[in-house]
């Protein structure tokens, strides 16, 4: 516990002394305010002025927006890992009792847990849509698994923080998957099944409909997420040697 507290405090200090990381941290807060206060206003406006019913798209909006904080948390921890690798802090931690395994476990769990918690704020704190509670925790976990993918993608492929910023944009491309799922409802959309957010979107729709196929999407989604996490983890560890 003492080690986890030390690592958390060190991350908090690192973030608080980096303007970019502070700005990124405001992202999830901005998402909450957007969903909680601006979307209802926009709904009323669109209904009144254009007779467009935005509420029909609330599930899509909540699904998409629940993924953004996850991506941002993954991005923050990815940049922290890159910085700690550049300064060779990880090399030193590897020869302390925490070792590299403990360090990576903490970093990946921290981004996952933050994302997990924020899922409930986005889904239940904004009041736009409801997902049956029996599905919420497991869906939140699948969403949260996007965070370690983001962190490890940056850590495995970017040489430094500047490259990390560029790679985050490439990572952002996988969020095309929910668009495909929601707006191209044919079997062709399974071509995007290798993208982790694809399964999040499928699970969202199934959970909302209280359909039992939800569990199949969760299993397949977990396999895709786990496979990508393991691949990136191996790539990162090989780079370290």
């Amino acid at each position: 516990m003492r080690k986890v507290l030390a690592l958390s405090l060190s991350d908090a200090k690192n973030i608080s002394r980096d303007t970019i990381l502070i700005l990124i941290l405001f992202g999830p807060v901005a998402i909450f305010f957007l969903l909680r206060y601006l979307i209802p206003v926009a709904t009323d406006y669109l209904q009144a002025e254009m007779a467009f019913d935005l509420t029909e798209h609330y599930l899509y909006i909540v699904c998409f927006m629940s993924l953004i904080p996850t991506q941002l948390f993954g991005f923050i921890f990815g940049l922290l890992i890159l910085e700690e690798r550049d300064e060779e802090i990880i090399a030193f931690i590897a020869v302390t009792p925490l070792q590299k395994t403990g360090y990576l476990t903490y970093k990946l769990l921290a981004s996952t847990l933050m994302s997990f918690a924020f899922f409930f704020i986005v889904v239940y704190g904004t009041g736009l849509t409801t997902i049956p509670l029996k599905y919420a925790s497991i869906l939140a976990l699948l969403v949260a698994f996007e965070a370690p993918i983001g962190s490890l993608f940056l850590a495995a492929y970017a040489e430094n923080k500047v490259e990390g910023m560029a790679y985050s944009k490439i990572l952002g491309l996988m969020y095309i998957a929910p668009v495909i799922v929601f707006f191209f409802d044919t079997n062709w959309h399974y071509f995007a099944a290798f993208l982790p957010p694809f399964w999040v979107a499928k699970a969202f729709i199934a959970a909302k409909a209280d359909a039992q196929i939800f569990w199949i999407y969760i299993v397949l989604g977990t396999l895709v997420h786990a496979g990508i996490i393991l691949f990136l983890l191996r790539k990162f560890l090989n780079n370290q040697r």
């Binding site: 003492r2 080690k3 507290l5 030390a6 405090l9 060190s10 200090k13 690192n14 002394r17 980096d18 300064e87 060779e88 802090i89 090399a91 030193f92 931690i93 302390t96 009792p97 925490l98």
Partner: peptide, 20 residues
Amino acid sequence: NLYSKFTALENLDFFRKLYS
């Protein structure tokens, strides 16, 4: 290999907590 954004005391204080 030290945290450049930390002071010397902050660095030592962080690393000492990694030991039991």
